[in-house]
Each structure stands twice: as C-alpha cells, then as structure tokens.
Design a protein around this nucleic acid. Structure first.
Lengths: 342, 342
DNA sequence: TATCCTTACTTTCTCGGTAACTTAGCCATA
DNA sequence: TATGGCTAAGTTACCGAGAAAGTAAGGATA
C-alpha cells in the first residue's frame, strides 16, 4: 500500500518535486503547458495528496477530537452525528472517541487526540470524572477545548450546555398550573453539573410554585435505565405516592416505565412522568413522554461553532459559556386535567 | 498552540535531538542517568509526542476510516461504538464519517480518509449506492477495505454481513410451528443486498414451510419509521389481513406499531410483528418486539478484526466473506398459541 | 602494543509536503 | 553595451519524528 507521491510524478516527468507541488497548487511559477502535463499524469497515476505531510508544515491538521461518554446513548448518538456534520461543513475531520463513562479512558483518549495534533477538543466529561488536572494541563498547552452538555465543576472553560434550571421551571410551572402538587425527583449524581443543576432547577421550580418538597421523594441514582427502574421500585415501597415523577433523563424515565408496567402502575392514569429528553426519543415511548426538550443536534452544531470560533480566534479571547434554553413539551405521559373539565 | 518537541528538550539539556528520541524510547545507547534526566524534563515541559510525525516515517498511521450511513440509526450507533472500542483495543484510532445515506458524501468521505492515510477502511454503503467505481479505484490503490452490514452488488471484496436468509428461515420456522399461516412482508429496496436478501429469505422460508405467499401482502418501502407507517396503512386498506407482519427492520416495525395504535389494531392480539433487529432496541418496544437478532456490537467487533487481519496480512491474501448467523428471539409482539393450550 | 568491543553519543537520511531563495535565459530600455 | 525586469524553472531549508550509520573514549583481549 504505497500510494503515489509528488516525487513519483516528478521522476516520471523529469522535473523536481517542488515543480510538481507548485503545478498542483496552480502557482504562477509554472507554465500552463507544464501544469497541464503534471496534472494529467497526476490523475493517471491516481495521486492523492498526503494530508498528514501537508499538515506537518501547516501546523494545522483540520482535525477535531471529540470525547463522548457513550454512543449507545441515543442523545449522544444524535449529538455526535450533528457534530460530524457541522465539522465537515467547516472543513474539519473528526476523531470520535468513547470514554464509556470512565475517567481513565477519557484521559487516555485525550492524550491520544493531542498526540494526533487535533486542532481542538470537544469534550463531554464522564459521569464520575472529578479530577480536573488533565484539563488544566490542556489549558496550559493552549489547546482549544470546549465542553459540551456536561462540564466539570471548578472550571470556567468555554462550554455549551443546556439551561437546566430554566427548563425545570418551565416544566413545573406548566404542570403545576394544571393542579398537580406532589412531585418526586429521580436525580443523577450531584458532582456532575448536569446532576446538581437539574436538581437545583427542580428545587427552585418547586419553591417558585410554593409546592412542598418531600425529601423521601428525592431519590439519587444514576443516568441509566436500571437506575430509573431501581428508583421507582424504591419509591413504590414508601407509604406515600406522588402524582408526578420528574426524572433526570429519558433513560431513567424508560426505567420508570418498565418498573411501573411490572408492578401494574399505569402511566399517565396512576402517575405522570416528565423528564429531560428530546423529541425523537420521546415519541417512541408509549405513552409518549413529556419532556424538557434538549435538542442534541442543536447542541452539537453550537458546540462545533463555538470550538471552531475559538480555534480561528473569532471570539475575543474570552471563554464564552453558551447556555441553550429549553422548552417544555407536554406529551401523553401526564394527564391534562383541564382537558377533562372542558 | 505550539507544543513542546524533542528539539526543545534537547536544547534545554544541551544534547542532540536524537539522544532525546532514544532516551524516551529506552534505547540501550543512552545511560540510565541521562535517560532519567531527559524523561524528567520532558515531563516538566509537558512533552506529548507528535504521532503524525511518527507515522510519517513509519508509513503507518494506526488510524482506520469508517463510513456509516446514519448515526441516528440506533443499530449503527451501537455498531460504531463497538467499532471504536475494538479498534482502540488493537491500538487503532478511528475516523468516523457519516454519509447520511448519500453516495456523493460517501465518496467525499472516502477520498478524505484516503488523504489522511488511514491504514484501512470499514464501509457500510449507503442505501442508494449503485456506482462501484470508487471501490474499484480503492482496490487498485491497494488500500485494505472491508464492507460491513451492507455491501454493493458486483463486488467480491472482504465483507462481514448477517446471514439474512438463515435468520428468516429460523424465524418463520418457529412462528409457523405455532400454527401461523398468513404472513405479510414489509420489505426495503431490492437493489441493496440487505433489501433483496431479506426478501429472498422471507420467500425461501415461506416456501420451505409450504405457506402461500400473497403478493398483495408484499409491500416494498424503505427502512425508516414512516415507511413502516405507510406500509401498514396501505395494508390496512386491503380486504384481507395477515396474522403476522414480517418487517425488514425495527424502525419499520416501529412505524407499524405507531400506525396500528392509531387505527386501533392491537399487537399482538390482532396482529403479530416480527422484524430484523437487536435486543436492546426490541426491549424498548411495548410490547417487546420479536426479532431476528442482529447484534451490532458483534458485527462491529468482527468487522474490525477482519479489517485489522487484512491490514496486518494475517489472512492468506484471500478476501474472506464472513457471514454471521442470526437467532430468532420470540418476544411479546407475537402471541404464543401453544401457551394457551397448556 | 595492536586490535576489538562497549558505551554513549552525534550525524545524516527519510517521510511528503510548503516556503523562501536562487538561477538561467530572454527581452527591453537607458 | 551594461542594466533591469520578467518568466519558468531549480535549490535549499524546514516541519517532528525514527532508523541507520558514524565516531570518540576507554577497557579487555591476544
């Protein structure tokens, strides 16, 4: 697998390699006649420029590194898709790596990407990442980095995240307006911004609506289907039962659906469910899941835009923290009380 | 963003660059004392080796290029995840590109990946790809290429696909054994191997079980949710109704579920559904979808193994066509008649 | 004591491209 | 006729690493 190089073409035509390079770049140094000849043979021989060598001198690879916690999570699959899309539109290739929600492999991926001299990094930290040492090092090396969706505490780096508290308020306002009062919250871990932001959002929204918060109904778990399942089973053993479960994401909601089906609790008749999620997935739930809408495609696009801006220094050196506002979408997992009155 | 190089370290310690290179590689030429000193300063300065430069001389990038039709498709998201995983286990990085089921962008991606001098290509051709010219060119350039899941007709390149006909037989054997006789088939397009293989499998399995095939019940559509939805609506307008719908994939099945719910047809009471799919997704259906199980993780792993074998010439130069057998998994979308008898 | 072998480095070459300087030949002008 | 400018090249250096070959000093061996 030895591909054709400029030297091969040069040898064939008895000119120097640099002449070939110039001809292919349409440099005025070379006569039109020779240019044509060189271009013709380069096509004949099937020459494809070695972008790696090109980038060696240019000190730019037009390559971005992305660290995703888990591609099996639909949300990240959609986000990754739009990241690749947006990047290629701006002329960048993307190395996708997966940390599998594991800090060790996250660090390994980052080192590797830096070794490949990516022009910038787009990172969604893993759930359990507490150590921010790597990111400090990366900052010291002056490598453009943007966090998306999640970011570690204690860092003011450039980031693109959702306005979780705003979304929680928007959702609970709407639901409370229909007369619901008793809310449970299945939360994630508090050390990741996503976990405590959503919890804070929930608490703030409850307070704003002057609703009582029952500590027994705030159950801290993880972000996976089984966490939702387990949390529901825990809730089901308590004496009091809420009207609405407010879940940290749609996978947890999926676990709630599963557990509820098993124990014969009906959604939305016996209990309502709302979660952070996005509509493509929400529509596949039966009944369709009410969500605080986080559009992964929008997230990916804005994240790439932010990163490329930083790389190309379009922003004024200040790390921008972009916050995307979320809307509440009322689907079929919560009964509309007002409807009945009509 | 100018990262530390070996020369920087060398200058600092008043030795030559090559001494640094050797020290970092633990070459016996260098004394233990100097090695330690070099390693210490290299850490202090935050040196990260430039893998691109390394690979320039080695003429090997330890990078693979992958072309995926659509990451928003769960199946491909899972497959991609396992591809990245398996590759990194073998020491390879992965460039993921998405063709969005579009041949033009597929070709663009391939050219770009070749430009980046990937050591090999893993390709799942887009649905409508008919032109195999690119792949002939790639073969001429001697770049290792493996097709996975789908492969274009008219090429005998190395590939890893599922044994669709075997899976169809296994499924229809089981279902027919319970007394079902009237099957419909919602098929994909016939020009892609996946489309006609599955149709052929269906027809062969029907024949084997001596079941009558009603041409009205074979509806050719696409591979998306709305295609399943439309096909069901078409079927619903016909006078006769089948007992089982055999769908080309789980997204089409999802469309069937949606349409059935809308018109009040109950699954599995009024109609049974079986589709090609994989269990993680099938379990999220209500009722859980009976599937001819295609494990995307297994596919990804085997595809990477096959590609790396080809790159490292472990196989004997012969293009191997690997076919993965599929099992039928009976979930809740088809009523078990025997169960009732018990 | 001449030769050989280690040890510990240094020099040079290569990969495939780009950029900045030459150079050779030709014509026009002062 | 010397000088200047233009065209169409060629030459050299550089990017950041690794590989191979070269070398100087010192000790062991014949």
């Amino acid at each position: 697998m030895a591909l054709i190089t400029q030297s091969d073409i040069a040898k064939r035509l008895n000119v120097t390699r640099v002449t070939v390079s110039k001809a292919l770049r349409d440099h005025p140094d070379i006569s039109t006649k020779l240019k044509e000849k060189i271009k013709r043979t380069s096509k004949e021989l099937g020459y494809t420029p070695n972008l790696i060598a090109k980038n060696l001198t240019a000190r730019k690879t037009f390559t971005l590194g992305v660290v995703i916690p888990d591609l099996e999570n639909n949300f990240f699959a959609y986000a990754t898709d739009s990241i690749i899309d947006a990047a290629s539109e701006k002329g960048y290739n993307v190395f996708v790596t997966v940390s599998r929600e594991n800090q060790q492999s996250e660090i390994l991926n980052l080192k590797n990407l830096i070794g490949m001299r990516v022009d910038g990094l787009l990172v969604c930290v893993s759930q359990h990442s507490r150590d921010i040492e790597v990111f400090n090092e990366i900052e010291k090396l002056n490598i453009p980095l943007v966090f998306f969706d999640r970011k570690p505490d204690g860092l003011n780096s450039q980031s693109v995240v959702f306005a979780d508290n705003y979304g929680a308020i928007s959702a609970i306002d709407s639901i409370a307006a229909e007369g619901y009062k008793r809310f449970a919250h299945f939360s994630g871990y508090s050390n990741i911004s996503i976990g405590h932001n959503r919890k804070e959002g929930f608490l703030a929204a409850m307070k704003k609506n002057e609703l009582k918060i029952d500590p027994e109904w705030i159950i801290e778990g993880g972000y996976e289907i089984e966490d939702g399942y387990n949390s529901f089973m825990k809730l089901n053993q308590k004496k009091k039962f809420p009207e609405i479960i407010f879940a940290v994401n749609d996978r947890v909601a999926m676990g709630v659906y599963k557990a509820a089906r098993e124990v014969g609790v009906k959604i939305p008749e016996d209990i309502g469910v709302v979660a952070y999620g996005f509509n493509e997935t929400a529509q596949t739930f039966t009944p369709t899941l009410s969500i605080i809408n986080q559009d992964p495609r929008k997230l990916g696009e804005i994240a790439i835009e932010s990163l490329v801006d930083k790389i190309e220094q379009k922003n004024n050196l200040l790390d921008r923290q972009i916050i995307i506002k979320e809307d509440f979408i009322w689907n079929n997992s919560i009964k509309r009380k007002n409807k009945l009155r009509k």
